[in-house]
Design a protein around this nucleic acid. Structure first.
Lengths: 135, 135
DNA sequence: TTCATTTCTTGATGTACATCAATGCAGCCG
DNA sequence: CGGCTGCATTGATGTACATCAAGAAATGAA
């Protein structure tokens, strides 16, 4: 649970490449929740200096069995999947800046590219095209 | 809630193409859970004749506030995102047949391709390559 | 300030997968 | 039986994005 600062969780694929799964700004819970018996998928580290509240799953569920928070999270994941399946690089970026305008300010572009599932070069070109189009 | 049969939920992108978000076999809950005020993303229909139990969100949460089911579902979504971001067509297919061997038998290949985020043609070629390799 | 380090951009080329089009191959119904 | 209809396969071609490599620009430390 992030009290201040900014975390990221990410996987590393078979070629050693990192893919950011989610950003964790203030008040987000960042966790892998690996099912018992199977290994975790995610690494977690801090992009900004952060203050965290660390808890086990049991403590967390006892404190705040907040079903609605879980449902919102499920919904965010659903939107992410839909985006990854049905939108191209430009559409994904546009959706991201609308949905998380604050995050954009705080992380380097290469991490946004990683979150979107594209390379930094591809993101750079998308941004160039968008900035031209505005004028 | 699926009592028998098989559902699919899917989106339709800006070009009219369908993308299967999830399959709903027996005992799965299939829903969009759209946040209030925003439109839904998913269509739902039946691949096999099905018997359903239909409930509102409130009824469902009152009956079975099953946090662990929600967590498992979150985990499945996480795995799906990780796959879409970090695995190629062949890896995604191999993961799918390991994770949902039963589903393979029950749906046409074009729907599996749609779930994997590739075209039926691409899936056909992946399968061809895998069957050659086995011999 | 200067140098070092990292990030961003730009261009040239490569590749995984999409698209398009044709063919094969069931199952089904007259 | 023949003809239809939808799915799977195969080949040829197209394209979005990746990769590689080189600068440019920002960041940060001494």
């Amino acid at each position: 649970m992030v009290e201040s600062g900014l975390l990221r969780s990410y996987t590393v694929d078979s070629k050693g490449k990192e893919h950011i799964y989610m950003f964790g700004p203030e008040n987000w819970i960042v966790t892998d929740n690996c099912p018992p018996g199977s290994p975790c998928q995610l690494y977690i580290d801090a992009i900004e200096d952060a203050v965290l509240k660390v808890a086990t799953k049991e403590e967390l569920l006892k404190e705040t069995p907040d079903i609605n928070a879980l449902l919102r999270r499920l919904n965010a994941m659903q939107t992410r999947i839909v985006m990854l399946m049905s939108a191209n690089a430009k559409e994904r970026y546009e959706h991201f800046i609308q949905t998380y305008p604050d995050i954009i300010q705080r992380v380097p572009q290469r991490m946004i590219a990683s979150y979107l599932g594209i390379t930094p070069e591809a993101l750079s070109r998308v941004r160039k095209e968008l900035s031209h189009r505005q004028q």
